[in-house]
Amino acid sequence: MSDPYWNHSTHYHPGLARLVTPGTRTALDVGCGEGLLTRRLRAAGAQHVLGVDLDPDQVGRARAAAGGPPEATGLDYVAGDVLAPLPGLAEPFDLVTTVATLHHLPLDEGLRRLRELVAPGGTLAVVGLTRPRTAWDRTVSAAAIPVARIARRRRGEWEHGSPIAEVTTSHAELNAAARVILPGARLRRRLYWRYTLVWRAPARSADQVRRGR
């Protein structure tokens, strides 16, 4: 079936929605835009989904598309900078997602902030872009061109209304930062000039559970 919202980034929304499990009580989408992924996460079973975006116009569209108040829909939205204290971000989340947004943030600070937002035992999933720097980077990038052309002809390409930022981080730089900040994260190159990074936060120890931490 044709998806009117398909593009190189939304292509990965179904895979992110599959990360919702029966234990996913809360989910956060950073850089939510008009809320496409938040609605998928809610439909997949997340009980309460919060979307955060710097653009108040996009947040307004997301709220309108939610179709009702947060207590009825399980969807809520906040306009603001995820790096700053914001309403709704005081407690960590069982699932944190972000698509084509990490390159808008300082790399190390952004990864650390995303890590902070994940509850013990929870999951962080990033879909993003890196800048080709090496010969291998450029080879992988060039290989995506014919696939993308075929996909555009068959599916079209939805143009989002979110601001665009230049991509400056290389795949190697991202990998090095993730090894330090998110040990054990799985980083993979993907189609359409994207990567996925998935990290599972350590679960609380029995001693921490007893202490209520």
Rank of each mutant, 00 (worst) to 15 (best):
G74D: 00
I150P: 00
A201C: 08
F93Q: 09
L16F: 11
S205N: 12
V52D: 07
G51I: 04
P92N: 13
S9A: 14
H103L: 10
S2W: 14
R25D: 10
P146C: 15
F93E: 07
R155W: 13
Y77N: 12
V82F: 07
L95H: 09
G184T: 07
G33V: 02
V20I: 14
R194D: 03
V49I: 07
G121K: 12
A143Q: 00
R18G: 06
Y77T: 09
I181W: 04
G51N: 03
W158D: 07
D137N: 05
G184W: 10
S205Q: 06
S141Q: 12
W158N: 10
N175M: 03
R39P: 10
V78C: 06
P183I: 13
V59Y: 08
Q58E: 07
N175G: 14
T101S: 05
G212N: 01
V82A: 09
L83R: 14
A203Y: 02
T134L: 04
H48L: 04
R39N: 09
S9D: 12
R152W: 10
V99M: 05
G184P: 05
A62E: 01
H48Q: 07
V140A: 13
H8W: 06
T134M: 03
I150K: 13
E91V: 05
A44V: 14
V147P: 00
V209S: 04
H48Y: 01
T38L: 12
P4F: 14
W6N: 07
A66G: 08
L105Q: 13
D53H: 08
Y77I: 10
D207A: 15
A79I: 09
A90E: 15
G51M: 04
Q58R: 08
A151D: 10
G67W: 00
V140K: 07
A142M: 01
A185Q: 10
T134Q: 01
R61F: 10
L117E: 03
A206I: 03
Y12W: 13
T130S: 11
E109L: 13
P69E: 00
V127N: 10
I164Y: 13
S9N: 15
P132I: 13
L50Y: 02
W158E: 09
L124M: 05
A165W: 14
T26L: 02
A148I: 02
E71Y: 04
Q58S: 12
G15K: 11
L41I: 12
R154W: 15
